[in-house]
Amino acid sequence: MTTYYFHVDNGEFIPDGDGVDLPDLDAARQEAVRAAGEMINESKRSFWEGMTPWIMNVTDDENHLLFTLQFAAKAPSGNALYIPQTEADHA
């Protein structure tokens, strides 16, 4: 088992001093996504109103940077339509 640390910067740097013991990198990736979703949910409106990207840097127990997640909410500046593209549009 390796201890993985999930350091967050959401406008305020929040270091992970405890870490989580996980079996491998894939488990750390899954935990990062789960934790990010939980943080967004717990933030209530501040995530949606701030429109500031959040960053999660994931390190191992030797402080090697393994990967970074960036997530942000964006709202259109005016009246916008979403028109999905089909595979034919890409040809």
Results as ranks from 00 to 15, higher is better:
1 M>S: 14
1 M>P: 12
3 T>I: 13
4 Y>I: 03
4 Y>H: 08
4 Y>Q: 04
6 F>I: 02
6 F>M: 02
7 H>Y: 01
7 H>E: 01
8 V>M: 07
8 V>A: 03
8 V>D: 01
9 D>Y: 05
10 N>F: 01
10 N>I: 04
13 F>M: 05
14 I>G: 01
15 P>Y: 08
15 P>S: 08
16 D>H: 07
17 G>L: 14
18 D>Y: 09
19 G>H: 11
19 G>T: 12
20 V>F: 03
20 V>C: 03
22 L>N: 05
23 P>K: 12
23 P>G: 11
29 R>D: 06
31 E>A: 15
32 A>P: 04
32 A>Y: 10
33 V>Y: 13
33 V>W: 07
35 A>M: 10
36 A>F: 09
37 G>M: 03
37 G>Q: 11
37 G>W: 06
38 E>A: 12
40 I>R: 11
40 I>K: 10
40 I>E: 05
40 I>Y: 03
41 N>S: 12
41 N>V: 08
41 N>C: 08
41 N>D: 13
42 E>C: 04
42 E>D: 15
43 S>G: 03
43 S>E: 06
44 K>E: 15
44 K>R: 14
44 K>P: 00
45 R>P: 00
45 R>N: 10
45 R>V: 12
47 F>S: 05
48 W>D: 02
48 W>K: 00
51 M>C: 06
53 P>G: 06
53 P>V: 11
54 W>F: 07
55 I>M: 02
56 M>C: 10
57 N>I: 00
58 V>D: 00
58 V>A: 00
58 V>I: 15
59 T>S: 12
59 T>N: 08
60 D>M: 03
60 D>Y: 09
60 D>T: 04
60 D>Q: 05
63 N>R: 11
64 H>Y: 11
65 L>R: 00
65 L>S: 11
66 L>V: 03
67 F>H: 02
67 F>R: 01
67 F>M: 00
67 F>K: 02
68 T>E: 14
68 T>Y: 00
69 L>R: 01
69 L>V: 02
70 Q>G: 06
70 Q>S: 10
71 F>D: 01
71 F>R: 00
71 F>I: 14
73 A>V: 02
73 A>S: 11
75 A>G: 05
75 A>R: 12
75 A>E: 10
76 P>L: 08
76 P>K: 02
77 S>P: 02
77 S>A: 08
78 G>P: 01
79 N>Q: 13
80 A>L: 06
81 L>V: 10
81 L>R: 11
82 Y>I: 14
82 Y>L: 13
83 I>L: 14
84 P>R: 10
87 E>N: 07
87 E>W: 09
88 A>N: 05
89 D>W: 00
90 H>K: 11
90 H>Y: 14
